[in-house]
Design a protein around this nucleic acid. Structure first.
Length: 228
DNA sequence: AAACCGACCAACCGCCACATT
DNA sequence: TAATGTGGCGGTTGGTCGGTT
């Protein structure tokens, strides 16, 4: 489906490839990932382009160390949800499922004395039919996805039923808003990621002028323009 | 200085369901 | 209805880097 095996490049992305992908998204928007190589000549499959955008280039992505608040949130969400990283990431502003997963496997699991890798075999954390239901209602941006009713699963660490999980999750929302405020600010009532998203796709920048004039936000901006 | 080792993390893989043709 | 295309997920791999010997 992704085309023949050898026509696509693999491995780390170069600055030039990033620039090409950014240009494409700026012009055509997100999605239609399999058109990227046709339109731009980029030797990357659609999947790879999507992943690069979602995990690195997207303005929604926050770089840098995880804060104590984020750690605490992830730990508690993981206790509720198990290894459902996209759901967890959806509740941790600016973090991708890959970031959360990596952070858990390299830091938090050790911190908690959890053996995160129970063998080499793939272990679905919940039935795929349920995952697909969630997928279909989860927006491509991970920043504001709504929590879906959670399936019971005997294969993850979630010991709660759907109702308990949903109720518990609701309690995280205020806390999440605090993390947003602390980390990226909520000036003008406009999200930081919204600003960059709008910039990238050519929306009205004036709306976000307060961000642009705030030097304290530099640490939160994930993308370097100077190599474009 | 160099070899080794472990931690980290970006990226890939395989699978799946939904959307489209 | 079936076939194909697409997007999304979690698990896993492998390259890079910094610390240690």
């Amino acid at each position: 489906m992704e085309g023949g095996g050898n026509e696509y490049k693999k491995g780390l992305w170069t600055v030039e490839e990033d620039r090409i992908l950014m240009d494409y998204i700026r012009e055509h928007g997100k999605g239609k990932w399999n058109r990227v190589n046709k339109v731009t000549g980029l030797k990357r499959c659609g999947k790879s382009c999507r992943l690069r955008w979602m995990n690195y280039l997207s303005p929604n992505v926050k770089r840098g160390d995880f804060s104590e608040e984020e750690d605490d949130l992830i730990i508690r969400l993981h206790k509720l949800l198990g290894n459902r990283w996209s759901l967890i990431a959806g509740r941790v502003p600016g973090r991708t499922d890959n970031q959360v997963k990596n952070h858990w496997n390299t830091h938090l699991s050790k911190k908690l004395g959890v053996n995160s890798k129970k063998g080499k075999t793939k272990a679905k954390t919940y039935p795929d039919s349920e995952r697909a239901k969630k997928n279909s209602s989860t927006p491509s941006s991970n920043s504001n996805s709504e929590l879906q009713p959670l399936p019971n699963s005997d294969s993850n660490s979630n010991i709660f039923g759907d109702d308990e999980v949903a109720a518990a999750i609701d309690g995280f929302d205020d806390e999440i808003m605090n993390i947003k405020d602390n980390n990226i600010g909520t000036k003008s009532g406009v999200g930081f990621s919204d600003m960059w998203e709008a910039m990238m796709i050519g929306n009205d920048l004036n709306l976000y002028s307060s961000y642009l004039l705030d030097p304290t936000l530099d640490d939160h901006y994930p993308f370097q323009f100077d190599h474009l």
